[in-house]
Amino acid sequence: MIEKLDIEATPRTPAVAFDFANHHLKISGESYPEDVTEFYGPVFIALDNYLKKIGKNKCRFDFELIYLNSSSAKAIMMVMDKLEDAAKNGATVEVYWYYDHEDDTMQELGEEFGEDLESAKFHLEKMAG
């Protein structure tokens, strides 16, 4: 199994830092890629492979997104669904959604995603600074 997935941020795609060995996963930055499937496809594959073997482990997922376009929102929802499924199957999943306190749209979006999480634990937090 791969230990980690690291994708550097670009102006239009977020940084992905999946530290599978330490069960700490993070997506941060801006997301409005030209082709959502092309960017998120490999991220989904790596995440699926990790979650398949997570068992009863504890995992933390941080979302620190500044801006995402509407097609990226769909991709993020799919990530949330994967995390919820893993939690339903016995893993302890902590989801942190960090938002810029000056942008209530991103706060609301976080709330909307959080509403759909039952087994995974959802935390809505202001970004530092």
Partner: peptide, 13 residues
């Protein structure tokens, strides 16, 4: 910040 993000988001869509 809110205006900047909103103008930009609408521009992208």
């Amino acid at each position: 910040t809110k205006t900047l993000r909103s103008v930009f988001a609408i521009f992208v869509e």
